[in-house]
Simulated assay, not measured.
Amino acid sequence: MPTVSEAAARSRDAALVAPLPSVDPVEDDDGDDEPDVVLPQAPQPRAGGRNLRTARNNVIRPGDLICGDCGQGNAPARKFCARCGFELREAQVARAPWWGRLRRRRGPRVVELGTGTGTGQQTDPATAPGGGFAAFWAKVKIVAGIMFCVGCLLYASYAPFRNTVNDKVAEVRTTAKGFLESQYSPVRPAKVAGASAKGRGTQNLIDLNSASYWSVPFAAKLTGAEKDKTVLVVQFDRIVNLDQLIVTAGAGDTYTEHGRPRQMYLTFTNEKRMRVDLKDSAKPQKFSLKGANAIKTVKIEITDAYPSDRGKDVAIAEIEFFSLLS
C-alpha cells in the first residue's frame, strides 16, 4: 500500500471544502439595513396622465348646453358634460343667429300610415298631408318665373311696353313720396275768445312769439263757473280743413312758475270731439287732428294741468294749426 505524505493529504482536504463568502469590512456588524446617503438631484419630469376625454365636437346646435369648462355642446337634457363631466347647471344655452331666426322653421313631416297595397309602389306626394299645397306653390313659382322672363324681354325689346312700365313706376313713386314727405300749410286763426289773466290775453296764443303766453286761473277741482274760464274758442275767417296741431305749453322763460296743460279736449264745428294728452315739456308738441274737416271753429277745453310751485294757473305760449297741401 503506497504511503501519502502529510502535505499532500492537507491539499486534498482543502480542495474538498467550499470557500466562504468574503465579508465587507465597511458593513456594520449589528445587521441594520439603512439606505445609503443620496445627494440632491434635479427634478425629473413626470409622465403625462392619460386623457380620458372624448374628441371635442365643435358642431353646436341651437338649444345645446355649452360646457363652461371645455366648450362642448351638449343635449338640453344632459346634467353633466359628455366630454369632461363638468356640471351643466349654469351652462349657457346656444341660440340661433339673428338671420337664422328670420327663416321659417319647419318641423318634422308627419305622414299618416295607410293600409298599403303591398306592391311596393310609393305614395303620390300630392296625396300626402301638405303635399297638395307644396305642389301648387311649386307651379306658381314656375309660372311667375316664366312671366318675369317674358316681361324682361318685352321691356328690353318693345318700346311701348317699356314706356307704359316707366309711367306706372313714376306714378307710384310720386304717390309714395307725397305720402312720406307730406307738406303742411299754416292756417292762421282770425281770433281766439276766452277768459285770461291780466296782461296775458288770448292774442298771445296766435302771435307766433313763444316769449309771450296766455294764462288763466286753474284749480285741481273745477266747478261749473271755473270750467268756463278754461275754455278757448278758436275762430277762422273761412271754412278750413285741419290736419295738424302744434302746442307750446308753459310760459316761456318762467316755465316752472306756471301750470302747464296736461289734457285738453277739442270740439270742432261738425261736433266731432278728440282728446289731446300733452307731455310736461317746453318744446312744441305735434298732434294729428282727426275729423277736423270743413270747420270754422275749434273749442279747446283744458281739463287737467301739471301743477306749478308758485302760481295756481295754467299757461300756453303758442297754438298753431296746419292743413295738408293737396
Rank of each mutant, 00 (worst) to 15 (best):
33 D>R: 04
26 V>F: 07
293 N>W: 02
25 P>H: 04
315 A>E: 01
51 N>I: 08
131 G>L: 00
6 E>K: 13
243 D>L: 03
119 T>W: 03
60 I>M: 04
20 L>V: 08
90 E>G: 11
1 M>D: 13
274 M>S: 06
105 R>M: 12
83 R>V: 14
241 N>D: 15
90 E>Q: 08
271 E>F: 10
164 T>G: 15
113 L>C: 04
284 P>L: 13
279 K>W: 02
203 Q>P: 06
296 K>D: 15
65 L>K: 15
188 R>L: 14
275 R>K: 14
107 G>K: 10
85 G>Y: 09
259 G>S: 12
260 R>Q: 13
266 L>M: 12
93 V>G: 05
125 P>L: 10
108 P>C: 06
176 A>R: 14
250 G>H: 05
126 A>K: 08
305 A>I: 09
314 V>M: 01
292 A>C: 07
145 G>H: 08
318 E>P: 04
120 G>D: 01
222 L>Y: 00
298 V>S: 00
88 L>V: 11
67 C>D: 08
195 A>Y: 07
105 R>I: 05
98 W>R: 09
268 F>T: 09
260 R>V: 15
209 N>Y: 03
66 I>E: 01
64 D>C: 07
36 D>W: 00
48 G>M: 12
129 P>M: 04
111 V>L: 03
174 T>Y: 00
299 K>H: 06
64 D>F: 14
214 W>T: 06
203 Q>N: 15
118 G>K: 00
245 L>Q: 05
304 D>V: 01
91 A>E: 07
53 R>Q: 12
266 L>H: 00
117 T>Y: 03
187 V>I: 09
233 V>N: 02
205 L>R: 04
150 V>H: 05
154 L>H: 05
160 P>N: 02
53 R>F: 09
63 G>L: 07
180 L>N: 07
206 I>P: 05
137 W>Q: 14
243 D>E: 10
258 H>K: 12
204 N>T: 05
31 G>L: 05
38 V>D: 05
228 D>V: 06
245 L>H: 01
125 P>K: 00
262 R>P: 00
260 R>I: 02
120 G>Y: 02
278 L>A: 04
50 R>H: 03
159 A>P: 09
47 A>M: 07
148 F>P: 00
209 N>Q: 03
54 T>Q: 06
282 A>W: 00
85 G>L: 10
320 E>D: 12
249 A>F: 04
253 D>C: 00
290 K>W: 02
159 A>D: 10
8 A>I: 13
103 R>K: 15
320 E>N: 09
165 V>T: 12
